[in-house]
Amino acid sequence: MTLDILIAEDELGILASLDFILKRAGWSVQSVFDGQAAIESVKKLSPKVLVLDVMLPKKSGFEVLKHLRKESESKDLPILILTAKGQKRDKELAKELGATAFITKPYANVEVVETVRSLLHKSKDIQGLK
């Protein structure tokens, strides 16, 4: 079965609630806790959407983003960046590196669910084109 969403987040409290709300919305979800594992899991599991925290151990979210955009299999993968760094500079950097969407912590659950929903649609469109 294809995986819908991969979450890369090292804060366990946030991860538990993200996992719950996304599964409850009817999607299959798996999680990793650091940047290196995120890169490996994207390759292995081919998720439709990646929810990516910026402050991750081993490799930061920005480094993961940069890496994934260079790989042909993940260059179009819809990626939602979650960060407590809400400054304009970080948003610009995320955009520059190829993030599809950006949400600043603390967020409302519905905001995450709706953004992921639209990214899944986007993923479907991309798959359709292929």
């Binding site: 804060e11 409290g13 946030i14 538990a16 609630s17 407590a84 912590k105 603390p106 967020y107």
Partner: peptide, 11 residues
Amino acid sequence: VLSQVTAIRSS
């Protein structure tokens, strides 16, 4: 603090 607030708010 922001990470903890996020976890609390979301839960």
